[in-house]
Design a binder for these strands. Structure first.
Length: 246
DNA sequence: CTATAACCGTAA
DNA sequence: TACGGTTATA
């Protein structure tokens, strides 16, 4: 289900709105192609009408935000990202909002301060990752946009605390690689259901992780990450309602 | 290659 | 008690 018209009220112009939601990417094309490659996805694709991958956000903000996510739930992740934000500089015209802090600032936060704020062991790993990011130079992360998906993913894996899934999240949401397929527990479940029933009683290993990504890219091509988004949210929504939450 | 425990806080 | 990504280890 794709809307033809939108009525929007925004504090920005039409072009910014179109850019934020990537309205130049045709959902009709992306979903039509996905459906023809994989008809069994019909209900899943129809279950989240209008779902889009947002335009790439600030890569560094995405980098640190996703370092908060492993072994974690949405509520706590939100709180942790807000805490990181509180270390940033206030906007001159809006002192009630702060800019997301630079890597240098995050590297300087003490482990104890973050642990006190409920970061757990990530209070240690996040400043370390910040230092590793700084070591690579100012333009490194942003420069991965020009490196191509495979190269960018491989480079990100070298940062401690960044595994295959985080690397794919950073590629998809921070660097604009629409072919990146982050395999978390929800996508793993959906992928086992639809494509790898023989894996329903084994765990997710790095080899199986790669196989899922390759299958998605060969099946769905350049917008594999968008199809991933539908399968993720569909499974996430079922999981939530199954557990009787929100 | 695969499986498993540990990491931490939250919620069932 | 179960859960969730990454890492280290077997």
């Amino acid at each position: 289900v794709v809307a033809d018209r939108y009525d929007v009220r925004s504090n920005r112009g039409e072009s910014e709105f179109r850019a934020l939601f990537q309205l130049d990417v045709s959902l009709r094309d992306v979903l039509g192609n996905a459906l023809s490659c994989s008809p069994e996805l019909h209900d899943c694709l129809a279950s989240q009408p209008g779902l889009r991958v947002l335009a790439q956000s600030d890569p560094e903000e995405v980098f640190f935000s996703f370092l908060c996510t492993p072994n974690n739930n949405v509520e706590r992740i939100t709180r942790m990202v807000r805490t990181l934000e509180s270390f940033g500089e206030p906007f001159a015209d809006r002192p009630d909002f702060r800019r997301f802090p630079q890597a240098e600032r995050i590297a300087a936060i003490g482990e104890g301060a973050l642990r006190k704020a409920g970061f757990g062991y990530r209070g240690k790993t996040i400043p370390i990752a910040a230092k590793e990011l700084i070591e690579r130079g100012a333009g490194w992360l942003n420069g991965l946009k020009r490196a191509g998906y495979r190269e960018a993913h491989a480079e990100l894996l070298e940062i401690s605390g960044v595994g295959p899934k985080l690397a794919d999240c950073i590629c998809l949401f921070g660097l604009g690689f629409s072919e990146a397929v982050p395999v978390d527990t929800h996508l793993w479940q959906a992928a086992c259901r639809e494509y790898f029933p023989e894996w329903s009683n084994v765990g997710l290993t790095e080899k199986r992780y790669r196989e899922i990504g390759e299958l998605f890219r060969s099946k769905f091509g350049r917008y594999a990450g968008w199809v991933h988004q539908y399968m993720f949210l569909d499974n996430f929504t079922r999981w939530r309602s199954g557990r009787g939450r929100v």
